[in-house]
């Protein structure tokens, strides 16, 4: 339900999206990932984008390694060994994902981003249920391994990741009431 949003994110940098609940951060990210069609306008370059939210498709009956290997193979990549260290999963490699704690599972979900080799990350509240240490871990990985390698990221979050990135408040772009409603328009 946003209108007139426009931004540039250069390679190697990130953009933080802010705004109260329900303003349309998730909608914007999903639209950028081409998971849902834009009501107006077009999206380009989505084939190199990866979308991630709290539902990260981790299977409880697979081990940590198997989960990561699956997503790597789907994207035609291999699992780099460094990923386990970056997300502090080294000691958990052969544990079933179902036995992990919520925070560990979340780290596994984020580690998926490290094996799929996408340049553009669209992150929706990536740090939910992470402790301060893990948040730092993730921010470090993002800065060193992703942005440092020429990737870029658009992140919707409520907490401070400690990244050196511009922030954008979406509140002013909230669409006028009549602009919403999608397909119902035809009947008014």
């Amino acid at each position: 339900m946003l209108e007139g949003v426009s931004f540039d994110v250069a390679a190697g940098s990130a953009l933080i999206l802010r705004g109260p609940n329900g303003v349309g951060k998730t909608t914007l990210l999903r639209t950028l990932a081409e998971l849902q069609p834009a009501l107006a306008g077009t999206v380009e370059g989505a084939e190199d984008a990866a979308y991630a939210s709290h539902a990260d498709g981790i299977k409880a009956q697979l081990t940590v390694t198997e989960n990561l290997a699956f997503w790597a193979e789907v994207h035609g990549a291999a699992v780099p060994d460094a990923v386990f260290a970056s997300f502090d999963l080294d000691s958990l490699r052969d544990r079933m994902a179902g036995t992990l704690s919520a925070g560990q599972k979340r780290r596994l979900g984020l580690a998926r981003l490290g094996v799929i080799g996408r340049k553009v990350l669209l992150l929706d509240e990536p740090t939910v249920s992470l402790d301060a240490f893990s948040v730092k871990l993730f921010a470090d990985w993002l800065e060193a391994e992703h942005l440092g390698q020429g990737g870029l990221a658009v992140i919707a979050t409520h907490i401070d990741l400690g990244l050196d990135a511009p922030e954008m408040d979406l509140t002013p772009y909230r669409a006028a009431p009549d602009a919403g409603g999608g397909s119902d328009e035809a009947f008014l």
Binding site: A49, A50, A52, H75
Partner: peptide, 16 residues
């Protein structure tokens, strides 16, 4: 199952 845990949208945006 894949729909509930979010794997399906991730698969949909994968190269497959």
């Amino acid at each position: 199952l894949d729909f509930e845990d979010g794997a399906l949208p991730l698969l949909a945006t994968s190269p497959l």
